[in-house]
Amino acid sequence: MDKHIATPITAEVTKELHAGDYVYISGTIYVARDAAHKRFMEVLDKAEEQFVPEQQNEAGRNKLADVLPFPLENAAVYYMGPSPAREGRPIGSAGPTTASRMDKYAPRLLDLGQKAMIGKGKRTQAVIDAIVRNQAVYFAAVGGAGALLSKCIKKSDLVCYGDLGAEAVLKLEVEDFPVVVVIDCEGNNLYETAVKKYAQET
């Protein structure tokens, strides 16, 4: 089923999304991949030593989330590292990267309020459990369609970690950015169900 959603992606939104839905996202999404996630963890580790763990922020979350470089509550994070933008364009080629490399970090961020992940490829059970626990969602964008996807990105701003080059954290404004719900908030996994549906005996 085709659906149009706007950010921020709240639990009210995710509970209406089902594995296999074709979704167009409009609004703000944040870009972060391997090296940025590693830094997020270092920032969180450091903060954890300073905070009393049960301190909460305005969203009722653990206050730790506030030390990250962008508002994590109900945020969508796109696992991506773009090619450089040509003059006059917001971004270069901008397709998803393999999400499993972020599996180590994702549950902690979902527990702190992140609601959606956009990437491609399989996730671990620990991530699926965190999706269900937090009523979150995992979307896949079409891998290798970076030119097409760049057309849906209207604006791109550097948030931080510019020294990481293609791995810097970006804030994107997107319009009808096409994704497919792969793992929904009930833990249904399209990668498993769809493959079974089309598998044939040889």
Partner: peptide, 10 residues
């Protein structure tokens, strides 16, 4: 015949 399909979505 594995069923993986385009994008792995079947």
């Amino acid at each position: 015949c594995l069923g993986i399909g385009p994008g792995g979505l079947g």
